[in-house]
Nucleic acid binder design. Structure first.
Lengths: 150, 150
DNA sequence: TATAATCCCTCTAGTGACTAGAGCATCAAG
DNA sequence: CTTGATGCTCTAGTCACTAGAGGGATTATA
């Protein structure tokens, strides 16, 4: 049995984040010692590592909740589980593609700058005039929230 | 002079978002008609388009604020302005690189699945055991907020 | 045993960039 | 003059944390 600080070091998850995970039901409530401090066991550490790894791979908390729920039924087929992972892979690829389009556009904008004054700066001009864009970020092609920015 | 709804259509920015931009000082407060409704002119539309385009390229609101401020001094050198754009390009490239590392890891995890039951699912195993990872998302290599997830 | 440093507790509020909804006022068309 | 769309303000919610206040508990050292 160990303290929340020890668990934090073992797992790489910050102390407030561990408490946050408990508050949203990702981690079960642990036991307490006589001084009301949380005391964890190896199972808690394993689950927290699982959560941390999944978050590091970009899974949403809701996905992780679903993964944990499924892991409680080891006899069932794992199709739904794999599907969550495949969806995450697809989301990641979509994000990469969109960011690459932005990268190309930004590179074009930056390349045109000739280091003069603001008044005739090509960067400002490019930002102000959407029609100069060759890339795929037309008014409807990209939603901001899909860029991983929101 | 046109209404906020018309401005929204012209710019591709939703009505509540326009009001939000005004509330945080990105857009100047427009005039009102006798019924207290906002009335915009072409300059407002141009500025909103500028903001929209910059957001679509991933610039943070604070960056956009800085860009707008600089555009008020057309006689100054545009170095600082270009630097913001170059920083954005660098950020975008960093995000792409990190997402590509995640993509590789996810692809590896998903590829190992043989479609059986949850109990021996390789996806769960891979998520639970960080040490299986070949990629660069070690415990300290990636912070979650740097993935564009936060 | 006393004390100091470190750790832990709960609770509230803040982050970024919006989005949703309540409850009401105004406008444009027929 | 009515009706439906549009507009107004204000509050609260989103996501996944993070920061801070104001205290209590534990542990290491003197």
């Amino acid at each position: 049995m160990f303290s929340i600080g020890q668990l934090s070091k073992d797992s790489g998850v910050k102390v407030p984040t561990i408490r946050y995970y408990e508050s949203i039901g990702l981690l079960p409530e642990p036991g307490r010692n006589t001084g009301n401090q949380r005391r964890y066991d190896g199972a808690a550490r394993d689950r927290l590592r699982f959560i941390h790894h999944a978050r590091a791979l970009g899974f949403a908390v809701d996905d992780i909740r679903a993964l944990i729920k499924m892991s409680d039924h080891p006899e069932r087929p794992c199709m739904a589980l794999d599907q969550i992972a495949r969806d995450q892979l697809a989301k990641t690829r979509t994000r990469i593609a969109r960011l690459q389009a932005l990268e190309a556009e930004l590179a074009r904008i930056v390349a045109n700058c000739e280091g003069e004054v603001v008044g005739n700066c090509s960067v400002l001009a490019a930002l102000g005039d959407h029609s100069q864009c060759a890339g795929p970020h037309g008014p409807t092609a990209l939603s901001l929230s899909d860029q991983g920015l929101a």
